[in-house]
């Protein structure tokens, strides 16, 4: 898990927080941040512009934190939801919901709880017949299923446990491919002596690349751009000026 601090931007504070949480791989209430820039206020109304946050995982010390910008807002304390279900309970519900969805779709499936700990729940569903249909384009359908199962398993509470739904090891294979892409692209960037870009990644895919290269001292990674245009940049360190 990354201990890095990263910078994200969003049209609203909530959007920026969410984007930071996704890239850090934790819930929105598990991040701490400082506001780097805020939209300008015109006559008390928030005008155009974006929120830029510098965010890190709660408990991690932000490396080389610059002094907070003048007038930066203090991080707001996330509310502690009371009576939160245990991670085992969330895992059991997620398994039940996933199997119910599959059975209503007329599909035979098994669902194995691969892990359930403070990082969340990983559920691997195995269905021999309709893999492609359930994964969808670029994993979109699987992401949607995962989202609904996750909300249902946490009973609609936000800031619950992250639920990851895999389908016959699809996500695991994608993750390995992406880690290889990260290494290859980093090698290209070093070889060429200039930044290399991996476009078109989803937030959790960018996180995989960030993490794959986090321990390297010859490259650094960051994301830039908004929404669908957001892309991951791998930058060799000690670039000649």
């Amino acid at each position: 898990m990354s201990n890095e601090a990263l910078e994200v931007t969003g049209k609203s504070l909530a959007e920026a927080q969410e984007s930071a949480a996704t890239e850090l791989g934790v819930g929105v209430d598990e991040i701490e941040y400082e506001v780097v820039t805020e939209p300008k206020r015109i006559l008390g109304v928030i005008g155009s512009g974006h929120y830029t946050l510098r965010a890190w995982r709660k408990g991690a010390t932000p490396p080389s934190a610059p002094p907070p910008a003048a007038g930066a807002a203090a991080p707001s304390e996330g509310e502690d939801a009371e009576g939160k279900p245990s991670v085992e309970e969330v895992a059991r519900r997620a398994q039940e919901i996933a199997l119910h969805i599959f059975s209503m779709m007329g599909l035979e499936a098994t669902a194995e709880i691969v892990s359930a700990d403070h990082d969340g729940v990983l559920l691997d569903v195995k269905n021999p017949t309709s893999q492609g249909l359930l994964i969808g384009r670029h994993g979109d359908t699987l992401d949607a299923l995962q989202f609904l199962v996750g909300v249902g398993a946490n009973r609609g509470e936000h800031g619950g446990y992250r639920v990851t739904l895999d389908l016959g090891g699809y996500r695991k294979r994608q993750e390995e491919k992406l880690q290889q892409t990260a290494l290859d692209t980093a090698a290209q960037a070093i070889e060429a002596g200039q930044e290399a870009v991996i476009p078109g990644l989803k937030a959790y895919e960018r996180r995989i690349v960030h993490n794959a290269l986090a321990d390297r001292d010859d490259v650094e990674t960051y994301s830039e751009g908004e929404g669908n245009q957001r892309q991951l940049v791998i930058s060799p360190k000690n670039l000649p000026e």
Binding site: E15, I101, M104, M105, G106, L107, S130, L133, L134, G136, D140, T141, D143, A144, L145, F147, L148, V151
Partner: peptide, 18 residues
């Protein structure tokens, strides 16, 4: 930003193809 509605739609559309 319509995220839940979008997920609902994708899953229903996939199921209907089935």
């Amino acid at each position: 930003r319509g995220r839940t509605a979008g997920a609902l739609r994708l899953v229903v559309e996939a199921a209907s193809r089935k």
